[in-house]
Amino acid sequence: MTCHVNFKGEKVVPVEEGQTLLQASLAAGIPHYHACGGKGQCTTCRVLVLEGEEQLTAPTIYERAIKNVKKFPDNVRLACQSFVKGESVVVHRLIRDETDRYIFIDSNEANTTTVMGERRKMALFFIDIRNFTPFIETNLPFDVIHIMRRIFALCRNAIARYDGEIIDTAGDGLYAVFGLNSKIRQAAESAVLAGLKILEDIKIFNNTYMRPYFNHTFEVGIGVHVGKVIVGNVGIGLSNNLTVMGYPVNIAARLQAATKELDNSFVISAIAYRLLKNPPYSVGCSYLNLKGVSNAYEVKLIGKPYEKKQAAAIQL
């Protein structure tokens, strides 16, 4: 039996028995976007059912799962999951204007997953350079930028060595992730190895370059956490546009900030620490009350106390 569906503002489309709305619209020449290939794994083919909702088959398990997350109203359906039982169905495609088409079709982004976004478990890594403000205040702009580039190069090389990806830099800190190409246990291991290498490389840099030429030394604070985050490409033309967002990212950033009050250069969540196959020695365990987190967060201290703080205490 052939039914007909009115794609409002576009055309009336014949739908053969066994065809989904998506298959029928594509067969009729409608450029109906379907990033996941019509498998119910995304929402880009969704339509608003204006009339005849009762003439469509019941939502599938894929639709119900997406509705639970997206909170779509009942009259929003995935075209790839909807079959037609009768006439008088009128729908409106929700992704159809030129801006949508650029983002989802005309973009040069080769990886569809990053355009759509996906949830995955990753290790989140934040690092901040300590003692940089005094250096800025007492040195020429050229020297400030030069040293910043040197330190960021140390960080970048260590992160890249362990298959990490720098997501963002801000002032004298940066944010990186591990796990784009590995499982979560390996990601956590890599984040820790990269952090330990940075600590060692900064120590060497201080001894061989900063002390002799600038009479100054730097220390860093590192925070690492793991969790399920959203990975995607926001497409605004900056760097590689990769964005990693979610609650675990905020936790990792706060762990890095807590290195000051804990007087330890490397703080890792106990959750991430337990994933490590060969965990480094922990000099202590602490419980942090983090802003926005109801329960105290258990962390491990795997770095060293700050020398500047120790020196100040000795002078007092």
Rank of each mutant, 00 (worst) to 15 (best):
K277G: 03
L26E: 10
P14E: 00
A296L: 14
E307L: 11
F214W: 15
I202V: 14
C285R: 15
S239F: 12
E51G: 01
P280W: 06
I184P: 04
R46V: 06
R130H: 05
K11Y: 01
N289A: 13
T43L: 10
N181E: 11
G173N: 14
Q256G: 13
A28F: 00
K183T: 01
I314W: 04
E165N: 14
R119F: 14
D201M: 11
A79M: 13
L193M: 06
V229W: 03
E87M: 00
F126M: 10
H146A: 08
A313T: 02
L290Q: 06
N233W: 05
K203R: 13
L262Q: 14
C3K: 01
R130E: 07
I166L: 07
A191R: 07
F125S: 06
G221V: 07
G284H: 08
Y209W: 09
E16N: 02
M116A: 11
A79L: 12
Y281S: 08
I251A: 13
K197F: 05
V76L: 11
E10P: 00
A252R: 11
A188Q: 05
T2D: 00
R119G: 08
V283P: 09
N278L: 07
R150T: 08
S294N: 10
L262Y: 04
C36W: 05
D106V: 00
P305W: 09
S265E: 06
K71E: 15
R254G: 07
A258E: 15
M245P: 01
K260A: 11
F132V: 04
R150L: 12
Y306A: 08
I151K: 13
P305V: 07
P280E: 12
N278H: 11
R211L: 13
E137L: 11
A28C: 06
N241Q: 07
I127L: 15
V283E: 14
V231W: 03
M210P: 04
G221Y: 09
G227D: 02
E219C: 08
A272D: 09
L275G: 06
E109S: 08
P279A: 13
K183P: 01
G18T: 01
T113C: 04
G235R: 04
R93G: 07
I230Q: 01
L22D: 06
N215R: 10
I95W: 09
G246H: 09
T133Y: 09
N250F: 07
N68I: 06
V144A: 09
T259M: 08
M245E: 06
K228H: 10
G195P: 14
E63M: 08
L180Y: 02
D100L: 04
S265N: 10
V220R: 01
P141H: 03
R46Y: 07
I95D: 11
K39N: 04
Y273D: 05
A312R: 09
A312F: 05
N250T: 13
N264V: 03
G303L: 11
K291C: 06
Y102T: 02
R211A: 04
F266K: 03
L288W: 02
T243R: 14
F132R: 08
M122V: 15
F214N: 15
N240Y: 09
L48A: 12
A110W: 01
G284F: 13
I159S: 08
A187C: 08
I302C: 15
A28M: 01
R254I: 07
G86P: 00
D100Y: 06
M122G: 04
Y306T: 08
G18W: 02
I230N: 08
V84G: 00
R120Q: 15
K67W: 10
R211G: 01
V220C: 12
L26I: 15
